[in-house]
Measured scan of single mutants.
Amino acid sequence: KRPMNAFIVWSRDQRRKMALENPRMRNSEISKQLGYQWKMLTEAEKWPFFQEAQKLQAMHREKYPNYK
């Protein structure tokens, strides 16, 4: 399994919040909304999620050194 990228790190919590706030919203619509919201974030707002993704990638490399 691949390490999470910055968008996935960010969207994990956002998806839960959105699903709780909009229980009738379909998963496909939630995904569209999340994509739009991510695009609207500034680079500074995205930065912590890129840092977290880099940490996860480093841990993944250490744990699975022969992963493609």
Rank of each mutant, 00 (worst) to 15 (best):
K1Y: 12
K1R: 05
K1S: 07
K1G: 13
K1H: 13
K1W: 08
R2H: 11
R2T: 08
R2F: 11
R2V: 10
R2I: 10
P3W: 07
P3C: 12
P3K: 07
P3E: 15
P3M: 05
P3F: 00
P3T: 13
M4E: 11
M4R: 00
M4Q: 08
M4G: 10
N5A: 08
N5C: 06
N5W: 04
N5E: 11
N5M: 02
N5K: 04
N5F: 02
A6L: 03
A6R: 05
A6H: 01
A6K: 01
A6W: 00
A6M: 00
A6T: 06
A6N: 13
A6S: 04
F7H: 02
I8M: 14
I8H: 09
I8T: 12
I8Q: 12
I8N: 13
I8W: 10
I8Y: 11
I8S: 14
I8K: 11
I8G: 14
V9G: 06
V9Y: 05
V9W: 07
V9R: 01
V9L: 15
V9T: 01
W10Q: 08
W10H: 06
W10G: 02
W10D: 08
W10A: 04
W10C: 01
S11A: 11
S11E: 09
S11F: 04
S11V: 08
S11P: 02
D13Y: 08
D13H: 04
D13P: 00
D13V: 10
D13E: 12
D13W: 06
D13L: 13
D13T: 08
D13R: 00
D13F: 02
D13G: 09
Q14N: 00
Q14C: 12
Q14P: 06
Q14W: 15
Q14H: 11
R15D: 11
R15F: 08
R15K: 11
R15P: 03
R15H: 13
R15G: 09
K17E: 03
K17H: 08
M18A: 02
M18L: 14
M18V: 07
M18G: 02
A19D: 03
A19F: 06
A19I: 11
A19C: 06
A19W: 00
A19R: 13
A19K: 14
A19V: 06
A19E: 13
L20I: 14
L20C: 14
L20R: 09
L20A: 14
L20W: 05
L20P: 06
L20G: 11
L20M: 11
L20K: 12
E21C: 10
E21F: 02
E21M: 07
E21Q: 03
N22Q: 06
N22P: 01
N22M: 10
N22L: 03
P23R: 02
P23K: 05
P23H: 03
R24P: 09
R24K: 15
R24V: 07
R24F: 05
R24W: 09
R24C: 15
R24M: 14
M25I: 07
M25K: 04
M25V: 05
M25R: 02
R26C: 05
R26K: 12
R26H: 10
R26F: 05
R26G: 14
R26W: 04
N27W: 08
N27Q: 13
N27M: 10
N27C: 06
N27A: 13
N27D: 14
S28W: 07
S28K: 02
S28N: 07
S28R: 06
S28D: 13
S28P: 14
S28Q: 08
E29L: 00
E29T: 00
E29H: 08
E29A: 03
I30R: 00
I30Y: 03
I30N: 06
S31P: 00
S31V: 11
S31W: 13
S31Y: 13
K32I: 09
K32E: 13
K32F: 04
K32R: 12
K32D: 08
K32V: 07
K32G: 02
K32N: 04
Q33M: 10
Q33K: 13
Q33N: 01
Q33G: 06
Q33F: 01
L34W: 00
L34M: 01
L34F: 07
L34T: 00
L34E: 00
L34K: 00
G35N: 08
G35D: 14
G35Q: 14
G35L: 12
G35T: 11
Y36H: 14
Y36V: 14
Y36E: 15
Y36Q: 15
Y36G: 09
Q37R: 10
Q37F: 11
Q37L: 06
Q37A: 07
Q37H: 08
Q37Y: 05
Q37D: 09
W38A: 07
W38V: 03
W38Q: 01
W38H: 01
W38R: 06
W38G: 00
W38C: 04
W38I: 01
W38S: 03
L41C: 01
L41W: 00
L41T: 01
T42F: 01
T42C: 02
T42H: 03
T42Y: 04
T42E: 06
A44P: 02
A44M: 03
A44L: 11
A44T: 12
A44N: 08
A44K: 06
E45G: 02
E45S: 01
E45T: 01
E45K: 03
E45D: 10
E45A: 02
E45I: 08
E45R: 01
K46F: 01
K46I: 00
K46T: 04
K46R: 07
K46C: 05
K46V: 04
K46N: 01
K46Q: 06
W47R: 15
W47E: 15
W47V: 11
W47Y: 12
W47Q: 15
W47L: 14
W47M: 14
W47F: 12
P48F: 15
P48I: 05
F49L: 04
F49A: 02
F49R: 04
F49P: 00
F50R: 12
F50D: 11
F50H: 15
F50L: 11
F50Q: 12
F50P: 03
F50K: 13
F50E: 15
F50V: 15
F50I: 07
F50M: 12
Q51D: 11
Q51S: 08
Q51R: 09
Q51F: 05
Q51Y: 03
Q51G: 04
E52Y: 03
E52P: 01
E52D: 03
E52H: 08
E52T: 04
E52S: 03
E52N: 06
E52V: 06
A53C: 04
A53K: 15
Q54N: 10
Q54A: 12
Q54V: 10
Q54T: 06
Q54C: 09
Q54M: 09
K55H: 08
K55N: 12
K55I: 07
K55E: 08
K55S: 06
K55W: 01
K55L: 06
K55V: 05
K55M: 10
L56I: 05
L56K: 08
L56A: 08
L56W: 05
L56E: 09
L56N: 00
L56S: 05
L56R: 06
L56F: 04
L56G: 06
L56Y: 14
Q57K: 04
Q57S: 09
Q57M: 06
Q57C: 10
Q57L: 05
Q57T: 12
Q57H: 05
Q57V: 03
A58G: 10
A58V: 09
A58M: 10
A58F: 06
M59Y: 09
M59H: 13
M59D: 11
M59Q: 13
M59T: 12
M59A: 11
M59L: 10
M59F: 04
H60K: 13
H60L: 05
H60W: 05
H60E: 14
H60F: 02
R61F: 14
R61D: 15
R61T: 12
R61Q: 10
R61N: 07
E62H: 03
E62T: 02
E62I: 07
E62Q: 09
E62D: 10
E62V: 08
K63E: 14
K63T: 12
K63G: 11
K63M: 12
Y64T: 11
Y64A: 15
Y64K: 11
Y64R: 12
Y64V: 13
Y64W: 06
Y64M: 09
Y64E: 15
P65R: 08
P65C: 14
P65Y: 13
P65D: 15
P65W: 07
N66P: 12
N66G: 12
N66Q: 13
N66S: 14
Y67W: 15
Y67A: 14
Y67Q: 14
Y67N: 14
Y67G: 14
Y67R: 14
K68T: 13
K68A: 09
K68E: 15
